[in-house]
Design a protein around this nucleic acid. Structure first.
Lengths: 341, 341
DNA sequence: CTGAAAGCGCTAACAA
DNA sequence: TTGTTAGCGCTTTCAG
């Protein structure tokens, strides 16, 4: 005989069904202790019976919290484009969603490629439409991280900021990854190993390069030829041309990312080098490029899902405990061995 | 002398500043006509002066609308993974965001890879936490499109549904794209052209195949050898091996997507064929694979951004006008000529 | 441990 | 054309 099947049930409906007050229902729903266990049970059954689901808007209105966080992808140009080109972005979303879903927290996606979009993001956060933000910035000069930090809301960054700012972030141990690559190449018996690095104003590139050099030095290789690229396949091709011209006898290569490794591999093959027999190639990132290469690329893989879940966890912690001091969490990468090395 | 700089200003504050009632301010903010132009101006200035921004939660509570829509990426397995692997997803998001941003509508991202996540999406929509959904389904057997249609909220789909259901969708003219490829190959003087199709239970694959055959027939080529793949690079490789074995003299190839084209190209090269001199290769999608190929792939490009913006437009129309009949909007693809053909 | 009641900020009848 | 007023559904003091 219920005629209100359409309008979704409210707290009031549950209260009536359970024979208690709205306040009590609210308490058990929000897990507040001071409720008689028996009544708790009654309420829970009533909730299930009427199919009650809290109304987010009403809750937000009174608590001032929204129950959602923003994933902001910020930056510009090719780097921005590549965030979407790689499985990377999907892995980030997967990791975050996996952590958020059981908690009932929602993810609002915002792109901030240009200045106007960036301003919108700032406004959006300022207006408190989300409780915090996870920021994936693809550009060393991106002003957004600093802007958000100044603004004050809880923010967590993917990767160490290019400029030192007070912000929590999650990153991978780049130098450890580079060391994995070096050890693998050495284990393969390679004697004349070179490297193609990413842009040296990006902290990650620098750490990969110095980590690689250090590990090679530890194996007695004092000199490692290196050429700087810019993370694109084309730059990898150019770098390999140069490497091959200056050091025609190299038998191992570590590239700062997979795209450059792919470019290098193609150039090496076009110069008649067999991969991995003549030159063993190791990349970094385990992107789609690594799988597209022939032979497929041996590469260093970030635990992106874990890192992303950690960002979500960290952000939620910052939201719950506003004064919390900023933290960094560093993850260890793995070596994925395929056929190129 | 204001002491309330922290708490964000409310309608009340604006009303006080403008010397009018809350209702009037609300009217000008919501663009309701019946307001004296002069008062409108005063209100607008007051809004700017106090830095007012509407509180979404409060508004939602009373209107029952949320001002946000969901982008649901649904499906499973490799196809799901590939949505994120391609620039495709980024282009979709870019297209949607571009349309939504000026309208102040927000995008909530939901992944529905497994059954439990799918149930969550259904719940989420049922609870009315978003006003509607754009659904990108990557899997012919995905039950979500039908589930959502049955549920009733406004939904727009990317690509024609595998099963005929009453749902608005946006798609590309696959056969027209295939014809572009055929005409290009013929224009290049190719005489023995083959094709690698996608899985034939996917409408898009079928249309590409039949569109290609039809166009070739129009050029007098009654017979076009074809092998069925499954959209993966590996299947492209296998298909090409077979094609080369059965028809060693082919001089042109149209693949149902870039990934298969990439696989085919690599196999052809390993069999000593030069691309494009010996075999001209045309792909479909203009994905990252197209650029990664050496030589880069000539391919058919969807106007994904435009299509996505149209999905947003359509969805908003369905939200505004609940009874609206379902529509499909079909876009024309382009041929991107690179070096492979 | 539980209930009554006061709003959170906004829109939308309804009056004026 | 404008103002008054009654809630939207929820959390949260404050009493009991």
């Amino acid at each position: 005989m219920r005629e209100d099947r359409l309008a979704s049930p409210t707290l009031e409906d549950v209260a009536r069904a359970a024979g208690v007050s709205r306040a009590t229902v609210s308490r058990v729903i929000n897990g507040i202790r001071n409720v008689d266990p028996e009544i708790q049970e009654t309420v829970r059954q009533a909730v299930a019976a009427v199919g009650y689901v809290p109304n987010r808007a009403a809750r937000s209105l009174v608590t001032g919290k929204t129950g959602s966080i923003a994933l902001v992808v910020s930056g510009a140009g090719q780097f921005f484009a590549r965030v979407f080109t790689d499985p990377f972005f999907g892995r980030v979303v997967t990791g975050i969603s996996g952590h958020l879903r059981p908690l009932g927290v929602h993810l609002v996606l915002m792109l901030a490629e240009a200045a106007d979009a960036r301003a919108q993001v700032v406004d959006y956060l300022r207006q408190g439409h989300v409780d915090g933000a996870i920021l994936v910035s693809t550009h060393a000069e991106d002003p957004l991280p600093a802007q958000l930090v100044e603004l004050g809301p809880p923010v967590v960054l993917f990767a160490r900021p290019a400029q030192p700012i007070r912000i929590s972030y999650v990153d991978v141990a780049h130098s450890a990854g580079a060391r994995l690559a070096a050890d693998h190449l050495i284990g393969l018996g390679r004697e004349r190993v070179a490297t193609i690095s990413g842009p040296l104003d990006v902290p990650a590139s620098l750490e990969r390069l110095s980590g690689f050099r250090e590990a090679m030095a530890r194996h007695g290789h004092a000199f490692v030829p290196s050429v700087e690229g810019n993370f694109t396949q084309e730059s990898g091709e150019r770098a390999m041309e140069r490497l091959l011209a200056e050091h025609p006898d190299i038998d191992g290569l570590f590239a700062g990312n997979d795209l450059m490794a792919q470019g290098a591999l193609i150039v090496a093959q076009s110069h008649g080098r067999r991969i991995p027999e003549d030159i063993a190639v190791v990349g970094f990132d385990d992107s789609s490029a690594a799988l597209a290469c022939r032979p497929p690329l041996t590469t260093v893989r970030h635990p992106v899902e874990d890192m992303s879940a950690e960002m979500a966890r960290l952000l939620l912690a910052h939201i719950q405990e506003p004064g919390r001091r900023v933290t960094s969490v560093i993850f260890e990468p793995d070596l994925v061995v395929r056929q190129s090395a």
